[in-house]
């Protein structure tokens, strides 16, 4: 059978990929996508731990994460749209109007 640690390692790798995306990419939509990858990595950990303990609590936390992700995507994309209207760009470096 597959050990718990393997699931956790997959989750860790996914989380690191997500972090890399947030750090490296200069496109707001891809940054949001990277955040979704990170949330999903965490979901995988929750479900794997829940399975090991034999309870459904892990799955329930995942539902909450999913709703939060949906809310985050809706608000995040709304912000992206209104930013795009102002600057015609999706590069976060373009929005420096109030920077020191």
């Amino acid at each position: 059978m597959i050990p718990l640690s393997h699931y956790l390692i997959v989750s860790a790798v996914l989380f690191s990929i997500g972090t890399t995306g947030v750090f490296l990419r200069r496109n707001l939509i891809t940054v949001l996508l990277s955040i979704e990858i990170m949330l999903n990595a965490v979901n995988l950990s929750f479900i794997a731990f829940g399975r090991t303990h034999g309870t459904v609590d892990g799955q329930i936390i995942v539902f909450f994460v999913m709703t939060v992700a949906a809310a985050e995507a809706a608000v995040g994309l709304a912000i992206v749209i209104s930013l795009f209207r102002h600057r015609e760009s999706l590069n976060p470096d373009a929005f420096t109007a109030l920077r020191w």
Binding site: M1, L4, S5, I9, A12, T19, A48, R51, T52
Partner: peptide
């Protein structure tokens, strides 16, 4: 980001009790 990956893997490998099969309990 690379450091994070290394740190997470190190943490996962050094904790005991994760090596059992995932569907052992329950």
């Amino acid at each position: 980001a690379l450091l994070l990956l290394l740190q997470l893997s190190w943490a996962l490998l050094s904790v005991s009790g994760l090596a059992g099969p995932v569907d052992a309990g329950g």
